[in-house]
Design a protein around this nucleic acid. Structure first.
Length: 281
DNA sequence: AGGTCGGCCTGGCAGC
DNA sequence: TGCTGCCAGGCCGACC
């Protein structure tokens, strides 16, 4: 599912293809995408505007257009943004088409229809949108160990839930949370506020490391994720624990266990990631 | 206030 | 074999 590295992979691929060109038309085939706005309203607001930038913040991919008009897209679980798919017919599950100059197009496909597009009028609206729902950008200089400590202080929620909270750290999802916690040797059910400074420092470093590794691998394709050209990412082959229940821990050989944390399937090595007090399970 | 949980949605797969 | 039903999960809103 598209998390920060997957969205960044798409952004890096599409940006040079769309920036500086004109978005001649937007076609919204599924009204749910921009609900509660009427698709015609969104189409009219963006059609004919030059693409100033294709940017990313957290898991949002945003078309920044002339006149301060933006469309912030979220791919959720199963969304992809395909560039110039075969022209004779729409690809499966096509929901929105961004028509560019000379017949080029970007098609948003989404089997589960969870993906969304938000129309934002004015740069202040885009900033307010980000500020309201997104915390620190983990690949920015602002994401320091001290910052993570201040975010975690006093929090009793499991550290996995804390990592998945986009208003704290933006862009980490289920895959990268599991991988970061394993690398930092922290059990996902430990309360975030109970972690010592050194552990939060290790977690900060691990989050950065797994996100960068994910980007280097072109993201992870475990469900429907594809690059803009339809190619799969490869980070799923580099998972150390995620989706590897029963396989040996790459560090100590203990079988990896699957449990539920923050309502999500969660993979741990309970030897390398000591279980919080009480007993296992 | 802050944490937990159900609903959204559909492809894929377990189970019969 | 074919059908049913359950599960995955990011995010939001409802609840405690």
């Amino acid at each position: 599912m598209p998390e920060l590295p997957e969205v960044e992979t798409i952004r890096r691929q599409l940006a040079p293809l769309v920036e500086g060109r004109t978005l001649e038309a937007l076609t919204v085939a599924d009204a749910r995408w921009c609900d509660p706005l009427d698709p015609r309203e969104v189409e009219a607001a963006v059609g004919g505007r030059a693409v100033r930038a294709l940017s990313r913040r957290g898991k949002y991919l945003t078309w920044e257009l002339a006149g301060g008009v933006s469309v912030a897209c979220h791919l959720r679980m199963t969304g992809t943004m395909l560039y110039d798919p075969p022209p004779d017919q729409d690809p499966p599950h096509a929901r929105v088409t961004f028509l560019l100059e000379e017949g080029h197009r970007v098609v948003f496909c989404d089997p589960r229809r969870f993906g969304t597009g938000e129309l934002l009028l004015g740069s202040a609206a885009l900033e307010a949108f980000h500020a309201a729902r997104l915390g620190v950008e983990p690949l920015s200089e602002a994401f320091t160990a001290a910052h993570l400590r201040s975010l975690a202080r006093g929090r009793r929620a499991p550290v996995k839930a804390f990592l998945l909270d986009q208003t704290k750290v933006a862009g980490v999802g289920n895959i990268y949370a599991d991988e970061a916690l394993f690398r930092a040797r922290i059990h996902p059910l430990r309360p975030a506020g109970a972690l010592r400074g050194a552990q939060l420092g290790a977690l900060r470093d691990a989050v950065v490391a797994v996100l960068e590794a994910g980007i280097d691998a072109g993201g992870a394709s475990i469900d429907d994720f594809r690059h803009a050209d339809g190619v799969q990412g490869s980070f799923q082959h580099a998972f150390l624990v995620h989706r590897r229940a029963g396989e040996p821990c790459p560090t100590c050989g203990t079988p990896i266990r699957k449990l539920v944390a923050a309502g999500r399937g969660t993979y741990v090595c309970e030897r390398c990631q000591p279980v919080p007090r009480r007993r296992s399970r």
